[in-house]
Design a protein around this nucleic acid. Structure first.
Lengths: 205, 205
DNA sequence: GTCTATATTTGGATAGAC
DNA sequence: GTCTATCCAAATATAGAC
């Protein structure tokens, strides 16, 4: 599937294809601005300037600014899903969880603006559309599979897992941007997590 | 110590006292607005209206909007420190850490806007002043003491600890506001954390 | 589709009278 | 200290010509 066509209606002819391509260009420029000036620092003025348009022309492609954020949201989760599809996961359950964790953290830290949009509620009034949110759910579901194989598939474990990983990502981004002070703890964190899950199961027997 | 005097210069006479009282009133109104419309939703217009002033009059009390955020930041950490001073901590090291953790999470969840200001970097351009930031450091230091007694006083453990707790708080606030889906995992999380720290030490011997 | 022009709102901040 | 008046900038969004 063409990345440029990842959102919007299916293309029927060349005019529509061009339209989608321009939409993609706008979204790409929006990401660039978000990385430079923060997610909330994306303005339609700057965005239009960056793609060589006048601000009102953007409304030929997106009905509102939130619609642009929504396209970015969807694209962000698409990127994570695509990354996972391309990743070879080890057979060993614990090692598989480790790979997922490292990958998730790298993905978060790689682009703080994207992390903010995908995993925090920080844009006032923005709610992802139903279709976009479905992608977020899909990611969570894929994660559960690997947790389950490693003996941590129950709801509590899953919640503890998300808290642990987003906590690491958040601290890394907030308090040591560009460094690895928290990212390097990921293997320790995975071991801590999976060991404790194993104990819980033993206790219950 | 009077809460109203918690920030600003020491009072020398009644005029100064009145001045400090008004500052405190402004900060209190700012908190109320932050809780209602989000932290970024605090505008000087609304704020002035709430305290019965015209917007420019606020500048008699604070030189800028960021200065108001800074006063809020300091007050937030003061509140946490004060809460800890009032808390009786059990002798048992593990139980002490549990109490600290529960208290911290309750504090975070109780006021999401405050959590956002104190523990996330979300206001564009805002940096706490040196004095205010010192309070944040003081909180971290106090935490270390209890972690140390429970055998988790090294730097890595401390970082893992902050990630774990803020992760729980963040998920709770973002994904289950008003509920307890993540908060109720706190004891499990503490056990998981301290058990793994113990193992690490044993392995090293 | 894209432009110019403009509406509308909102924001933080300053000048100067009282 | 507080007000009125105002500035300046930035933001999203719409109308209508081309």
């Amino acid at each position: 599937m063409n990345l440029l066509m990842a959102f919007g209606e299916p293309t029927t002819d060349r005019r529509a294809a061009r339209h989608e391509a321009t939409k993609a260009e706008i979204v790409e420029a929006a990401w660039a601005l978000a990385r430079e000036h923060g997610l909330a620092g994306v303005s339609l003025r700057d965005l239009a300037k960056r793609v060589g348009m006048q601000p009102p022309s953007l409304y030929s492609y997106f009905p509102s600014k939130h619609a642009i954020y929504d396209a970015m949201f969807a694209q962000g989760y698409e990127a994570l899903l695509e990354l996972r599809r391309r990743t070879e996961v080890p057979d060993d359950p614990r090692e598989a969880v480790r790979v997922m964790a490292r990958q998730f953290l790298a993905f978060c830290v790689e682009d703080p603006a994207r992390y903010q949009l995908l995993f925090q509620r920080t844009i006032p009034g923005f709610e992802p559309s139903e279709e976009s949110y479905a992608l977020a759910t899909e990611v969570l579901g894929a994660t559960s599979t690997y947790l389950d194989r490693a003996g941590a598939g129950d709801a509590e474990s899953r919640d503890l897992w998300t808290a642990l990983l987003t906590g690491l990502a958040d601290q890394q981004i907030s308090n040591d941007p560009g460094g690895d002070r928290w990212v390097r703890l990921v293997d320790t964190a995975v071991d801590m997590f999976l060991d404790s899950r194993g104990q819980t199961r033993r206790r219950r027997r």
